[in-house]
Amino acid sequence: MENNGYSNYFCYLRSFASPKQISELLGIPIFISGPHEGGELVTNHSSRFGFYHPEFPIRLRSYFLPGKKNPGFQKATQKIYDDYIRKTARAFFVVHRKLESNQDYFDKETNRYIDLVSEKRLDPYYLDKYDLFLVPDFTDAEEESDGSKFVSWEGDDIYPAVLVRETVGFWIRRRIDGTEPQFYLGLTDLLKLYDFDFYETRMKEKDPSAK
């Protein structure tokens, strides 16, 4: 499963709890609008995407990271993280870091996505252009000198293209619906709890190109 995109990971999680069950547990709807119906995750609709409830990532952190207060639970679930979650969580982190390293590009891509959705022109394969986003020399222009510049970390280009493209799309949509900061906080909590060495190493070297 780690070689697939996060939409496949969503399907895996659904085998443990349905979106309806999660919504009932948290006491709020997961989405306040969007094309997701019948428990299906739709990420390539031409004119709509899911707007998360603003409280959803906050309550998700509270309910689903009990290991923060219970070391025994963390130890008992470490192997689950290692086997099924680690690669996806790391991909979300490194993609976000690279997007954040060029705010102009992040803003431009966010605004472009908004325009395409509002005009109902979002192609089902639109996100494919991000397949190589984590490659160090990724550029958004024909001439490298005209392209956006990013900070790249060694080893970030190991993730499957489908996971990279879906993750870029996720962060763009979260910037639009306003839940990006809270989802990122939840992600860093997860990494600090289950993947601390990875997180600490990345945070120590804020700009690996500045050597």
Score class of each variant (00 low, 15 high):
residue 83 D to E: 15
residue 172 I to R: 04
residue 60 L to A: 06
residue 172 I to P: 06
residue 178 G to R: 03
residue 151 V to R: 12
residue 91 A to Q: 06
residue 186 G to F: 02
residue 83 D to H: 01
residue 10 F to A: 08
residue 119 E to Q: 15
residue 119 E to C: 06
residue 58 I to L: 11
residue 7 S to D: 11
residue 204 K to V: 01
residue 88 T to L: 06
residue 201 T to Q: 15
residue 199 Y to W: 15
residue 147 G to T: 10
residue 202 R to I: 09
residue 125 Y to T: 08
residue 96 H to N: 14
residue 80 I to G: 08
residue 41 L to V: 01
residue 150 F to G: 00
residue 159 Y to C: 00
residue 107 D to L: 12
residue 19 P to E: 09
residue 25 L to C: 07
residue 169 G to C: 03
residue 122 L to H: 10
residue 41 L to P: 06
residue 28 I to K: 01
residue 48 R to V: 01
residue 152 S to M: 13
residue 92 F to V: 01
residue 122 L to C: 10
residue 109 E to C: 08
residue 72 G to A: 11
residue 201 T to G: 10
residue 90 R to E: 07
residue 13 L to Q: 15
residue 188 T to F: 00
residue 192 K to L: 11
residue 201 T to C: 04
residue 102 N to E: 05
residue 192 K to Y: 15
residue 140 D to E: 14
residue 100 E to D: 15
residue 26 L to N: 01
residue 15 S to W: 04
residue 203 M to V: 09
residue 126 Y to M: 04
residue 37 E to C: 14
residue 127 L to D: 14
residue 151 V to I: 15
residue 34 G to H: 05
residue 29 P to D: 11
residue 93 F to I: 03
residue 59 R to D: 00
residue 31 F to A: 06
residue 40 E to C: 08
residue 71 P to I: 05
residue 144 E to R: 15
residue 69 K to A: 02
residue 210 A to D: 11
residue 63 Y to S: 02
residue 141 A to E: 15
residue 148 S to D: 07
residue 166 E to A: 00
residue 9 Y to Q: 08
residue 124 P to E: 13
residue 120 K to L: 04
residue 205 E to C: 09
residue 165 R to C: 07
residue 20 K to V: 04
residue 151 V to C: 12
residue 58 I to M: 01
residue 170 F to P: 04
residue 59 R to M: 10
residue 174 R to K: 08
residue 37 E to I: 11
residue 173 R to E: 08
residue 176 I to A: 05
residue 136 P to I: 08
residue 77 T to D: 03
residue 46 S to L: 04
residue 25 L to R: 10
residue 24 E to G: 01
residue 195 D to T: 08
residue 188 T to P: 10
residue 101 S to G: 07
residue 184 Y to C: 01
residue 1 M to Q: 05
residue 158 I to E: 14
